[in-house]
């Protein structure tokens, strides 16, 4: 085999990526091994949270686990609704020169550090939620405005540019012949959008899965706006924890509590797995949809 200089130059980068991700997984597994051996997935199904510095405490993560799921679902819904609406608006109603402006806005939103979204959530959105009085809908509604809903919406806004870019691209990539056919049948604006959204349904679901994968691992925004209370997220306007916010707030002192560190790392491992499964599924579905739409239009 001939040695290709470019290959020699590039392969370390690829290998480094693989090694780093493998070592992250390995460390998470190794450090949380105790939990898996003693408890299996029991800690994910247990509600009780009673820390202790003397003996092994009980660290049931059911509440933050559900908190993560609910927050991610809210974020996914917000991002999905916004990006679908944007795709229809840009393609059916907005003037062509508006496109550049939209791209610019999406790029700048995507470039913002998550802490900025967190600060916005803290200083603008949470007070708005508090003043809206929505908390009174819940038995244990948040008096501060920090809630699962607040965190979910802000994370959704943070993800929206990425998911919008994907849905916009799918909308634009719909073979022109379908657009022509719809037009020849008298479909305009909203009606045409209805059929086209049906055509790219797969891409929309794919972008939702990617959003979910992104949202479930989001930490900064959530830790700032979710309320940080161990609470079953039965109602969206009450404060709660997610696994990521729990790790962010507890990991620093976890060494004081026997067994806590291992539980938190086990939780992190669950998030990593959930996020990668959702992301891979999304990417697979996006590929399949794009290929099918191209193939069937011939």
């Amino acid at each position: 085999m001939k040695l290709d200089p470019l290959k020699i130059l590039l392969s370390p980068a690829a290998i480094a990526l693989i090694i780093v991700s493998a070592s992250i997984l390995a460390v998470l597994v190794y450090e949380s091994l105790n939990t898996w051996i003693q408890d299996g997935i029991g800690f994910l199904l247990r509600l009780e949270w009673s820390p202790s510095e003397e003996t092994y405490g009980t660290y049931g993560m059911l509440a933050p686990f559900l908190g993560s799921l609910v927050t991610a679902v809210i974020a996914m819904t917000v991002a999905g609704a916004l990006s679908t609406a944007l795709a229809v608006f840009v393609n059916e109603y907005a003037p062509k020169r508006f496109n550049n402006f939209i791209s610019l806005a999406l790029f700048s939103m995507a470039a913002l550090p998550t802490i900025v979204y967190g600060m916005w959530g803290l200083s603008v959105f949470a007070p708005a939620v508090r003043q809206s009085g929505l908390a009174s809908l819940c038995a244990m509604g948040s008096p501060t405005g920090y809630s699962v809903f607040t965190a979910g919406v802000v994370v959704g806004l943070m993800i929206a540019p990425f998911s919008a870019a994907m849905v916009l691209e799918a909308y634009r990539a719909v073979p022109f012949t379908y657009v022509e056919a719809l037009h020849s049948l008298g479909a305009k604006g909203f009606e045409r959008a209805g059929v086209i959204l049906g055509l790219i349904k797969g891409s929309i679901i794919a972008s939702a899965l990617l959003s979910f994968g992104r949202a479930i691992g989001e930490t900064t925004i959530v830790a700032m706006t979710v309320g940080n209370v161990i609470n079953l997220p039965l109602c969206p306007f009450q404060p709660a924890h997610t696994i990521t916010s729990l790790i962010a707030s507890q990991f620093g002192n976890a060494y004081l509590y026997p067994g806590l560190q291992s539980r938190l790392l086990a939780g992190a491992l669950v998030m990593v797995i959930g996020s990668s499964v959702s992301t891979s599924l999304g990417m697979w579905l996006a590929r399949v949809t794009a290929r099918r739409l191209k193939g069937e239009s011939l």
Binding site: G186, G198, L199, L293, E296, L298
Partner: peptide, 21 residues
């Protein structure tokens, strides 16, 4: 023109039924 064009149908070079319908 909308009224008139409602009486005009079209068939394309490549069969293009909506695959999801």
């Amino acid at each position: 023109s909308d009224e008139v064009l409602a009486k005009v149908g079209m068939v394309f070079q490549t069969p293009n039924p909506f695959p999801h319908l």
